[in-house]
Design a protein around this nucleic acid. Structure first.
Length: 152
DNA sequence: GCCAACGTTGGC
DNA sequence: GCCAACGTTGGC
């Protein structure tokens, strides 16, 4: 089983929005590294931390589960979408996603500030300087530690 | 609002 | 292939 973290701006799509939808395509990712992780590494049932970026405060708000195999992001073909990509084509789609299914909202936010101070989490990719990836793997031990913090 | 740290684009 | 210009991310 794989463990991951995805970022979303809560003003755009929050953990509460995912809870309301239950299952949602993780669309709008327009970074090749992030796409490759969804396409190549994520499997149905893998567990994912839901991180609120550009939030006050930023931090992990809950968890979700990979709920589909990879498939083409429909927004790349939608001329009215912010995520429209004129260089993509139906025959050879550039952007690939998976569905995410809501699992749980934490009883409290595990803030970025708190994670930075946590000696168990110093290796986390999320916490490395300058990291902007919106989809990334996390270690199982890190994942479980953050879950524990989220339910304190 | 600022700006560091990227990633992408396009001229050459 | 290089790299300057530009755009984006995301914490602060």
């Amino acid at each position: 089983m794989g463990y991951f973290l995805v970022k979303s701006e809560p003003s755009v799509f929050s953990i509460d929005d995912l809870q309301a939808k239950d299952v949602e395509p993780w669309d709008g990712v327009r970074n090749y590294q992030a796409r490759n992780i969804m396409r190549d590494d994520m499997k149905v049932g893998d567990r994912v931390l839901f991180y609120h970026s550009n939030a006050k405060p930023p931090g992990v708000a809950g968890s979700c589960v990979v709920a589909s195999s990879p498939y083409a992001d429909a927004t790349q073909f939608d001329i009215n979408s912010n995520y429209y990509d004129p260089k993509s084509s139906l025959e050879n789609p550039r952007w690939i996603l998976v569905d995410m299914k809501f699992e749980q909202k934490f009883s409290r936010l595990v803030s970025l500030q708190e994670m930075k101070k946590d000696s168990f989490l110093t290796q986390m990719r999320l916490l490395q300087k300058g990291n902007r990836l919106s989809v990334m793997p996390v270690q199982k031990e890190e994942f479980m530690h953050i879950l524990t913090l989220g339910y304190q």
